[in-house]
Amino acid sequence: MHDVDAGYGAVRVLHHVSIEVREGETVALLGTNGNGKSTLIKCIMGIVRPEAGEIFLETDGTRVDLTKRPTEEIVGLGIAMVPEGRRLFPKLTVQENLLLGAYRPQARGDIARNLAFCFEAFPVLRARRKQLAGSMSGGEQQMLAVARALMSSPRILLVDEPSVGLAPILVNRVIGKIKELKERHHLTVLMAEQNFNQATKIADRGYIIVHGKIEFEGHSTQELREHELVKKYYLGV
């Protein structure tokens, strides 16, 4: 993502934002509410169109311009998103939600394997697979949202605020699972999170976004931890 400006109508949210996520990395996008984390992720998915700048996906030497593609095609390229607020299909069962996650033609052959993996990673989903998604607790819904995204056999996983609305113990569990999944599937992960301590547990490196600008790029979690913005916003120093 290079030099991206984006916003909603007259309100500009992102200003000259450039970030890079390399294959196999877990990158954290840190910032408190209202600083543009979600907008940035929506730009990658084609849900919000940038006014200026470039967003590219490079795989095996080919370069695809994401700003010109509709969301469903971007998903087809192997980028999955766990949206903020989960956005499950509340009146479908857990299993139906998971199977919809495998809609992408490239993922349909892997359904049995992916489903087995999701049930193993989140046993509660197996127990509740006939239950309507809307009737589950927030933590269970978040697990389902992550599992549903994984059903598409993604190469890149974008996670928007996995910790919002969850009890701390569940945040721990969901974040821990994302890490485990990432290692086993060789995923590339970009995670937007305001919960600094949780995000840096699994991130290789990260960016800090303030008022729609990338204020700091930390090449390691150590660098992030020691940065004054983090101290100011998160550690109360």
């Binding site: 969301t71 469903e72 998903v75 949206p83 499950l88 299909f89 809609y103 598409s152």
Partner: peptide, 12 residues
């Protein structure tokens, strides 16, 4: 139920 979520599944 959720049109945007369906697009995120890769369906138009």
């Amino acid at each position: 139920q959720d049109r945007l979520a369906l697009r995120l599944m890769g369906a138009d």
